[in-house]
Simulated assay, not measured.
Amino acid sequence: MLRINRENLRSSHQMIWLLIDFMMLGLLIINLAFIIWDSIYNFVAIQNLLEQHLPAVNSVYRPVHENFIFYDLVFVSIFLTEFFLRWGYSVKANVYDRWYFYPFIHWYDLVGCIPVGSLRFLRVLRIISIIYRLHQYKIIDFTSTRLYRFVMFYYDAFMEELSDRIVLKVLSGLQDEVKRGSPLLEKIQQDILYPRRGMLSDWLSERVAQAAQQGYVPNRGALRAYLENRVDHALKQNLELSRLKYLPVVGPTIQDTLENAVGDIVANVIHQILEDLASSTNHAFIEDIVNVFLPEPGEEVADDAETQALINLTLEVIDAVKDQVRVKRWREALP
């Protein structure tokens, strides 16, 4: 149900104009109802029906119908008076940059005042503009009405269906281009990705360093203990190394020394790799990886089988996107 926020109406600095809006809204509704009824009465069958069942109503309204233009001009005169009042106020308050902008912006107010059947119904636009203005000032809130929710639900459903069909058509066309051997992938690599290799290298270097700092540095002690434990376990499972303990006198000592040395070497190597990745020195390493994936234009980096595999991967990705687009979100809101 549409409710009027009287508190906002009282506190508004344009209370007079808002009251005029309410008055004009009522007159427009009455005028449109009058126009619709007169259009219906214009049919001979309706006149005969009234003459048979409601002759008093027919006799009263017939003179009104014959002078319909005069009564409609009464409404038009009120609408034009309000229009020129608002125009004068907009000029005085410098609402628009030029004084003559107002009639062009509110053209539907003027055109709707022309007493021609097809143009009279443009007064509906005036009703919409008044309701929208009242909604902007939070005097009324039509978004809470059932009619608004009903209309917006089916509007969203229509727009989703329309946009889904357009997107599916575009994606299907893209798949056809890829299947026909379109140079799209090569253009993306050479014209978009390759000129930005430096930026990609810098970004990946920063992200890798950040990930290493946040993931490794606070847990280096636990990681070292884990690596030494796993290396020690692996060495004990090694048959050749286990035979060293059978050497007389020095066998167990050599075995323990080798286990400790290998564990320490592995832990130090992993530690140094992660330390390098966590610092700015990883840039050259990341840059080499980017250069492998984005070689100089013209270099042969993939054979036919690899190219076909890349095309198939692209087609599968597009299929996945199309499957997601086919999901009808508006149906989830149905009761």
Rank of each mutant, 00 (worst) to 15 (best):
F79I: 04
V57H: 10
L32W: 04
I46A: 03
Q52L: 15
Y96S: 06
P63Y: 07
F70R: 03
I36Y: 08
S59Y: 07
L49T: 08
E51T: 10
W37G: 00
A45E: 14
F34N: 01
V95Q: 04
D38S: 13
N31Y: 13
A56T: 08
I40V: 11
F75W: 09
V74M: 15
F75I: 00
V44K: 08
R86E: 11
F43V: 01
Y102H: 09
I46R: 03
L49I: 08
F34C: 03
S90F: 07
L28H: 08
F22S: 02
I36S: 00
L32F: 05
R86G: 11
L32R: 04
L28V: 01
L73M: 12
E66R: 06
L73P: 01
Y89M: 13
N42M: 09
R98G: 02
F83N: 03
I20L: 15
L73D: 06
I30Q: 08
D97R: 13
T81G: 15
Y100E: 10
S77H: 06
R98N: 10
W37H: 02
L25W: 13
A93S: 13
A93P: 01
E66W: 09
P63D: 02
F101M: 14
V57L: 15
Y61W: 14
S77Y: 14
L28R: 05
F43Y: 15
V76D: 14
F34H: 05
W37F: 12
L73V: 05
D72F: 15
Q52C: 08
N58I: 02
S59G: 08
P55W: 11
E66I: 08
F101T: 09
G26Y: 14
L49C: 07
L54Q: 07
E82K: 06
V74C: 14
V44F: 09
F68V: 09
R62V: 09
H65K: 02
Y71H: 05
N67I: 04
